[in-house]
Design a protein around this nucleic acid. Sequence first.
DNA 1: GATGCATACTATCAATTTGATATATAAAAG
DNA 2: CTTTTATATATCAAATTGATAGTATGCATC
Lengths: 183, 183
Amino acid sequence: MDVKTVCLGMLTDGPASGYDMKKCFESSFGHFFPAGYGSIYPALATLARNGMVEFEDVPQEGKPDRKVYSITDAGRQELQKGLSNPEPTHKVRSEFLATIWFAHLMEDEQIDAIVDNKLSEIEGFLKMIDEFPDCDCDQVPKGAQFVAGFGRHMAASFKAYIESNRDVLTENKPVDVKLAIGS
Amino acid sequence: MDVKTVCLGMLTDGPASGYDMKKCFESSFGHFFPAGYGSIYPALATLARNGMVEFEDVPQEGKPDRKVYSITDAGRQELQKGLSNPEPTHKVRSEFLATIWFAHLMEDEQIDAIVDNKLSEIEGFLKMIDEFPDCDCDQVPKGAQFVAGFGRHMAASFKAYIESNRDVLTENKPVDVKLAIGS
DNA sequence: GATGCATACTATCAATTTGATATATAAAAG
DNA sequence: CTTTTATATATCAAATTGATAGTATGCATC
């Protein structure tokens, strides 16, 4: 599963341009599967070359032309192939944790700044998804509901762990094992 | 912060070869900052070219030679620079969530298989870190303790969410908002 | 006694992704 | 009047991924 597969998936909702897809990555997808122009445009070019998508040039007044992509039947088959892996990965790449690992090489002030910044970032994220509420809940596909709930849950969990254990990094406390192990 | 910085950090613990570092990435670091030979060896080559590390060829009997790297003073400074970013990232790239997002395009059996596999993967991870217990807790640096506890906590949280909400994907239930929002 | 696999080391390569930048127009904000 | 934001395309160097290659020893399996 790569960006190509996700683009195909997005196109099952209807035709879209690369720019549209970028916005979709920014708003929802990007939180668990980020992608920028540098991967979206090459992905679309490859998909078009292989007949998985078709595109139409749509001129606009006062705005640049749009290249609007649609999924083909071959594309739908390819998408099924992309979704058929029974062991999809789930990877974290965290400069935050890598930095904190080396806390013993850092000043307490540095550590506190990093932790504070990360906490407010998470709080911002939680606020954002709670302001954008379960509006038209019946229209949203079950998978999207599940994933959105997952994001909310994990962010809250992230916040709780940091708040309970940040003392370990600057004072001399051991980690709160109960919280670490508990559900 | 990239693989180079992490390699420098590892070398503050003492000299090591690329192979040693790969094992370190596999056992602990890789859970939050993965790297393979394809990034480790180029990173070490660049660091050596720039005088951040030195290496010695160590012949061995019955085994291939080792290239043992040590950090230099310039390397220690570079490491401090690498750790000085007050807003380090924390990114998720999840084929799992991307696949689940498209659950409405899939068969229930496919979804169940994916969820079952992911659950047993997490259970294996939790078992692993709990068998490898808080042994020499005073010797382990505070940052490593914090990060290990974080991994345990997030894995448990991941598991709890999936178990409480997997029904959403194959039956017609809404997500359990209380669990999603709660601590 | 051969065949395959695990461990110990090095290293490279094509494909993909990242993060930034280039180009161009128009409206809105300051 | 200048900067920023939005609409849209696209490319590029650098980094990373995941696989593979090469070389040597030991250990088990057939």
